[in-house]
Amino acid sequence: MPQNPRISRVEAVVNIASGGASPEAAEKMAALLAERGVTARVHAVQGEEVGRSLRTAIESAPDLVVILAGDGTARSAAELAGPDGPLIAPLAGGTMNMLPHAVYGVRPWEEALADALESGEARDIGGGCVDGRSFLVAAILGAPALWAPAREAMRAGNLSIALGRMRRAWSRAFSGRLRYALDGGPRGKAEALAFMCPMASKVMANDEQALEAAIIDPQGLAQAARIGLSALISDWRSDPAVTSVSCRTAGVWAAGRIPAVLDGEPARLPSAARIEWRPKVARVLAPPREADAA
């Protein structure tokens, strides 16, 4: 049975440019931690300071590293901490907040942190790895990955920027199909692929030791437009041009570098990439499981 860890020293990183955090949030977090008798250092940072502060926080080996930021910053923290480093607590401070919502549910970060400090347990969290980089929620490879920046611009209300990014994404549609092989099986072709960790998947149990692979293969411009619209306003996984299977490893090849999004952050992969499931990427301070809490 998981143990409730003793939390006495905390490092916290608040990304005040992530869309859901602010300097006031950093002050509120410092007060919340002080009220619970926790020795804490809170870093309110943005831009290039975020990575440096994460590294400094983790290298100081605290009992817990709290992150109030978006999924990308949480991904970086998990990657830096690794499977044997300090516990992390990824709180909802971004725009999509897929990882915080998967761990703590959809609720205010103050409530999630207070409950985690009071009754949280140390829990291993699995994820994927692509081209040496971890992802805890999802990785999207191929032209549809270019829709993600447009979606974020729409969320922020920047319509002109969103339209520019939509035009760029549309111009890349069908510019180069991917070849792939799942678990060493036969090769196939697709416009794009997405790999979702169990906590982000809608068809897998949270403790399943595999990735959900979504094969995105629109047949013509009409289906491509439909998937692009779904990427902006709903869930493209429900589109009939998307097929989902489970896998533990995958190889992906293209004629040139592969556009990708890893936990909400744009990335460029080489023309050949390997994706694999890793059962333990990091450790999180999570609420007790329902069976444990009963």
Rank of each mutant, 00 (worst) to 15 (best):
V130G: 01
G72M: 05
V42L: 09
P90Y: 09
G132D: 03
G72E: 07
E118N: 12
G93H: 07
L54K: 04
I67Y: 03
D84G: 03
S134M: 13
V42K: 15
T95H: 13
L80P: 00
I125S: 03
G120P: 08
V50E: 05
G142W: 13
T56Y: 01
A34E: 12
Q46P: 01
L91F: 04
S76H: 11
G85L: 06
V65Q: 07
E35F: 02
G37A: 05
P62E: 03
V65I: 11
R107C: 01
L80C: 02
L80E: 06
A81G: 06
Y104F: 15
A112T: 05
E59C: 00
H43P: 00
S134A: 11
M96I: 11
L117R: 15
D71F: 10
L117Q: 12
R52Q: 10
A44M: 05
S76G: 01
A81N: 08
L33M: 03
H43K: 09
L141F: 10
A114C: 05
G93R: 13
A44T: 02
R36Y: 05
G128V: 07
A116L: 08
G142N: 11
R55N: 00
G93I: 01
A40V: 06
H43I: 00
E121I: 14
E49F: 04
W109M: 06
A138W: 00
A138M: 15
L91M: 05
A74I: 02
A44I: 06
G85C: 05
A61E: 13
E79T: 14
D124W: 07
V66M: 04
L113S: 09
P100N: 06
A139F: 09
G82S: 08
Y104N: 08
L141V: 13
G94H: 10
R52I: 00
D63S: 09
I58A: 02
R133W: 04
G126W: 12
A116Q: 11
A139Y: 13
G37P: 03
P83W: 13
D84T: 13
R133I: 00
G120K: 14
A69E: 03
I140F: 12
P100Q: 09
G37R: 15
I140T: 14
A114F: 02
T39P: 01
A102T: 09
P83V: 07
H43T: 01
A81Q: 10
Q46C: 09
G70V: 04
L136W: 13
E59W: 06
P86C: 02
G105S: 07
